[in-house]
Design a binder for these strands. Structure first.
Lengths: 193, 193
DNA sequence: CTACTGTGCGACATCAGTGTCGCATATTGA
DNA sequence: TCAATATGCGACACTGATGTCGCACAGTAG
């Protein structure tokens, strides 16, 4: 579907995807990981990685593209242009939590995006997020005094923090979404009722 | 004062500190930066780095220790055990923003802390932060339904996001503290007045 | 069952980064 | 001013990671 090599067999496609997922996952946690590390995580031989990707740079670039697509799809499936802004924001948080590894990989080190990926003017996550935020601000649901891009970055930061909590076993995948949403909406101050 | 080599001359001390600061700053933004990159940022020759640190590992370890100390000092100067919890939290945010590079260096890649630094049970930033959060929760100022450690991570995440905004020139150092505090306290939802 | 595709294995060459070294020069402190 | 300290420079050796290659075997599709 999204693979540039759509004439690939199912077997090759699966191997390629396993390598890309492993690359994002391993590099998200250790930027200096070797090709051997990635191959191990993908459960293939190092030479197999070379059969799919010309070199290390090629692999990382492909992993960046793949991650951008995975995040884009997850965000699209959240359908944030529909429904009340607060509900849509909650679906957005879930969508991001579902692609936690890719987010950590893409944004954990700004060098990755600068060297391998989309250039700054093109925002990897699509404008619909900013649209949602602006819609919510117009509706009086989101704080109009906060810059929409800042809100977007806050969202990512909290999702990121949530993913790390889950990774460390300090929070369940089930409870993290609620906690992230609660903190995103209310902050840490006790909300007067 | 805190340098293990207190018999060092002022010149040597200054050179050592320049290298450590450059290490934290450069590695915060590019985990795979070389010793040559760090030396360039410190405005010394690469061989000079070797005169101060046995090898790359030694330098990174020293940079971790130095960063932990710098953050600890900044947090200590915030005097968060004094005054109302909300005020103390604001000073804490400022304290963290003041050591932004070190935070990005230490926590931008979990591998750094795991391999070079303090082990998990010893929390690099001191317990007083958790004490402050619990104090605020007891006083009804902070949300008692949020885990104190989660609140601490949220604080770091937002500080981190703020530092990146400043780095990208999208926010001034002056306004970032207010924005971080506002978002930390209120979240993104419009707060009813 | 067979032919084709895909992969593991391991050896080998290359290369970027690191670590070492000695010398000349710059800087600093007495 | 001079001696001691600090540093830049660049050459060189070493090391780990990468990239290439060919062969044998595993897996898959017809």
């Amino acid at each position: 579907m999204d693979s540039p090599r759509t004439t690939e067999t199912g077997t090759r496609n699966r191997t390629r995807r396993a390598i890309l997922r492993a690359a994002a996952s391993v590099l998200a946690r250790q930027r200096t990981a070797t090709l051997a590390d990635i191959a191990r995580a993908a459960e293939v031989n190092r030479s197999t990685v070379h059969r799919y990707f010309a070199d290390r740079d090629d692999l990382i670039r492909a992993a960046v593209d793949d991650s951008v697509e995975a995040i884009g799809r997850s965000v699209e499936e959240a359908g944030i242009h529909e429904g009340p802004a607060a509900e849509a924001m909650r679906r957005l948080v879930l969508a991001h939590l579902n692609v936690g590894d890719r987010l950590m990989f893409l944004f954990g080190d700004r060098h990755t995006m600068r060297r391998y990926g989309v250039v700054e003017p093109e925002k990897p996550p699509p404008d619909p997020m900013i649209d949602l935020i602006e819609r919510g601000q117009a509706d009086g649901v989101f704080d109009p005094d906060l810059d929409p891009q800042w809100i977007q970055h806050v969202l990512w930061s909290l999702v990121y923090a949530g993913i790390e909590e889950v990774d460390r076993g300090r929070m369940s995948r089930h409870s993290v979404a609620a906690t992230v949403v609660r903190t995103l909406e209310n902050g840490i101050r006790t909300r007067p009722r």
